[in-house]
């Protein structure tokens, strides 16, 4: 928190005590800013129409399968096949 850029550094001619309270005031502000960040924000208006939502009608393009079939030739598969051959060979011994 102290690493944050000081917005308007405390005047140098002030007593150390005043400096300190300036520091803490700044910290409070910063903390407040952080907190607000975490909550669901108030909407600027109470109500809106369908046109103001982004209902795409079909959400399917927003989600994709969690596996990947495009990489069957990648290193891992090649290495795996190699290793599997070794396993086979060991078994036959």
């Amino acid at each position: 928190m102290s690493a944050a850029p000081a917005s308007g550094a405390a005047p140098t001619n002030k007593a150390a005590v005043a400096d300190k309270s300036a520091e803490s005031a700044k910290d409070v502000k910063l903390a407040a800013a952080l907190e607000e960040d975490d909550e669901f924000e108030d909407f600027p208006v109470e109500n809106w129409t369908k046109e103001d939502t982004e209902v795409p009608g079909d959400n399917t393009h927003l989600w994709e399968e969690s596996w990947d079939d495009d990489d069957t030739n990648e290193d891992f598969s090649a290495q795996l096949k190699e290793e599997l051959k070794k396993v086979e060979a060991n078994k036959k011994k």
């Binding site: 909407f43 208006v45 809106w48 994709e64 969690s66």
Partner: peptide, 26 residues
């Protein structure tokens, strides 16, 4: 509301892990 970017971001923060578990999609 489509302009409430921060709120949409918050919704997705939970919807994405949810989707991963219920439908195994990303």
């Amino acid at each position: 509301h489509k302009d409430s970017v921060r709120n949409k971001e918050l919704i997705l923060t939970y919807l994405i892990p949810c989707h991963l578990l219920t439908t195994h999609t990303l």
